[in-house]
Write a protein that binds this DNA or RNA. Structure first.
Length: 261
DNA sequence: AATGGGGTCAACCGCGGTCCA
DNA sequence: CTGGACCGCGGTTGACCCCAT
């Protein structure tokens, strides 16, 4: 599976690690630690470079490393975190105890990337369909009473507020929770690297859905995340959830929109 | 049985960040 | 401030595996 061991022009061994080398490295680190990777191979009696030793320890020999197949939960978490953080494998690895960044990266490219891309392609089609449905529903929607109208809309200066309904973002962002939560647009953008276009999209929809839009929460679910609902929920359907997380009145006062991930 | 092509994954490489003299 | 040493991260490579033909 891996390149055969060989010696480079400097006499340094490269390629696959032997059991004997593993044993030497493990024994040395367990006894003395790894305060200096550059010096370590010499002291441990290995013909490897420090980098190679570090990689071998970190990915395979460390007692913290969990080898074996990825569980469904781990895969789901990787997909969610990759959506949020991008290819920050070391950051993703922090959230999966026992898994190395290299292992996660390999698993992503080998197993998850293609299936995720397929999902996203389907999601895009579904989203277009749902936007069409929303516009249709909006056109046929009865007029709201004047008391509920836009007159209550007082946008905070310089801050658009977004209610994020996401489990995925709860993993790393203190400003979001496992259910709906209330955060500023900047928090939201900080929480998820892929969120920018999502937010931009939502505010494009704001323009389309002007007028009565602000009198009702606008829900758009996004299948690109593994945690989202696949159904388009009415504002009433979600009202109970909202009330638990933030004052409905407060949301309306601040001209918020709802985003279901 | 032979072969070729895609998938997998351990390991390498290069670059950027940090630390220290 | 600068430059060298070191470390860590992410992209890429390449040998082996597996399956279809």
């Amino acid at each position: 599976m891996v390149m055969a061991a060989f010696y480079d022009k400097n006499g340094r061994k490269k390629g696959a690690w032997s059991e004997d080398e593993d044993k030497k490295l493990r024994t040395y680190i367990e006894r003395y630690g790894h305060y200096n990777w550059r010096e370590l191979p010499k002291l441990a009696g290995l013909s490897r470079c420090g980098k190679s030793c570090r990689l071998r320890w970190k990915n395979y020999l460390s007692p913290n490393v969990k080898l074996g197949n990825f569980s469904k939960e781990e895969e789901d978490l990787i997909v969610a975190l990759q959506n949020k953080l991008g290819n920050k494998w070391s950051k993703i690895a922090e959230k999966l105890p026992g898994r190395s960044d290299n292992e996660i990266k390999n698993h992503w490219h080998a197993h998850l990337k293609t299936s995720t891309q397929k999902d996203q392609a389907m999601s895009s089609n579904n989203k277009d369909r749902r936007i069409g449905s929303l516009k249709k529903a909006y056109k046929s929607k009865p007029k709201v009473s004047p008391t509920n109208k836009k007159s209550n809309f007082k946008p905070q200066q310089g801050v658009e507020n977004v209610v994020v309904n996401t489990m995925a973002s709860s993993q790393s962002s203190p400003s979001t929770t496992a259910t709906s939560s209330y955060c500023s647009l900047s928090d939201f953008n900080n929480a998820t690297s892929s969120s920018h276009d999502v937010v931009t999209q939502s505010f494009e929809y704001n323009n389309i859905m002007e007028g009565d839009f602000w009198t009702e929460p606008f829900i758009l679910d996004d299948n690109s995340s593994i945690y989202q609902s696949d159904t388009l929920l009415s504002p009433l359907d979600l009202a109970d959830d909202y009330i638990n997380q933030a004052s409905y009145q407060d949301i309306m006062m601040n001209g918020s929109c709802f985003w279901s991930m």
